[in-house]
Design a protein around this nucleic acid. Structure first.
Lengths: 151, 151
DNA sequence: GTCAAAGCTTGAGATACTGAAGCACCTGGC
DNA sequence: GCCAGGTGCTTCAGTATCTCAAGCTTTGAC
């Protein structure tokens, strides 16, 4: 940057407030886009988490909720034709959730229709996009609890 | 920045992915801290939205849900002693939600206990904090739908 | 073969959320 | 003053979400 001298370093509380506001607004944009396609935000979030095939148990981990909860969510995705359960080779206890072509289609449409989010991106210049992306990449492992990357 | 020449501008899809991941991780940290104090994430979110007194209807707007929903959430906050309904001067239809001292105490404790979020902040240098804060401030009005401030 | 553990489902109970209906109250026109 | 229409909140179905406990099947170690 180095644009001006006006820049004072924000406190943690200020950063937290700003991050929370942006996160909440992003989430509402996402939920609204999902609702337009008849999906709850939980269902849409689950759909986004199974772009690669994922066992039920691991999906629960990704969504941060109990495994029994995932059963119901995947039930509904399956009845909507957006995902399927497949048997895992090698362990017949495991069921793997696989997104269908229609599911991927809907997911892409939802992401494309997040109008406010896209507007927000357009309000950034290249330097800001690079900075934001790099900060997210740097911070994510810490925030998600994968401190090293080793494990 | 200006550190190196390696920086290529991320696509919207990459930015969206990064933002979603950070947002989700932040939210899980928040929900976990709230749960430690016996609050659901909806209740904690509502508590954070009433640091200033807010009418029920406006609270529904802030939370992005139906007004009838807020009735139940505030019911529970009230029965926990974390917030109160007060009559509005001048319009007896309106009920204003006011956080209690205990509510503010719990809210501060929750925010203080968001360990991963604080770790993530510590992983940033001053330049990054300034950049992130400024991007959030610039992008929030667009993302939240208050484009000009005029309307 | 037996047993502990893991993966998924089911059931009960609480919360969250929406939409429709209802009540109390305010506002503007008469 | 009075009445019609609009606004703010609550209540009432009905569904979805979520957690915990219990159950079933399968796996892996012994």
């Amino acid at each position: 940057m180095g644009s001006t001298a006006t820049t004072t370093v924000p406190t943690n509380a200020e950063l937290m407030e700003a991050l929370a506001a942006v996160g909440a607004a992003y989430f509402q944009d996402f939920a609204a886009a999902a609702a337009r396609h008849g999906l709850s935000s939980s269902q849409a979030k689950a759909l986004g988490a199974v772009q690669e095939p994922v066992p039920m148990r691991a999906l629960a981990g990704r969504l941060g909720c109990d495994a029994s909860n995932v059963t119901g969510i995947v039930d509904r995705l399956e009845s909507l034709g957006l995902a399927n359960r497949e048997a895992a080779a090698g362990d017949r206890r495991v069921k793997i959730v696989v997104i269908t072509a229609e599911g991927r289609e809907i997911l892409n449409r939802i992401r494309g229709e997040m109008a406010r989010t896209h507007q927000a991106f357009e309000a950034m210049d290249d330097e800001q996009r690079i900075a934001l992306h790099s900060i997210c990449a740097q911070v994510l492992p810490v925030l998600a609890g994968r401190t090293g990357g080793a494990q």
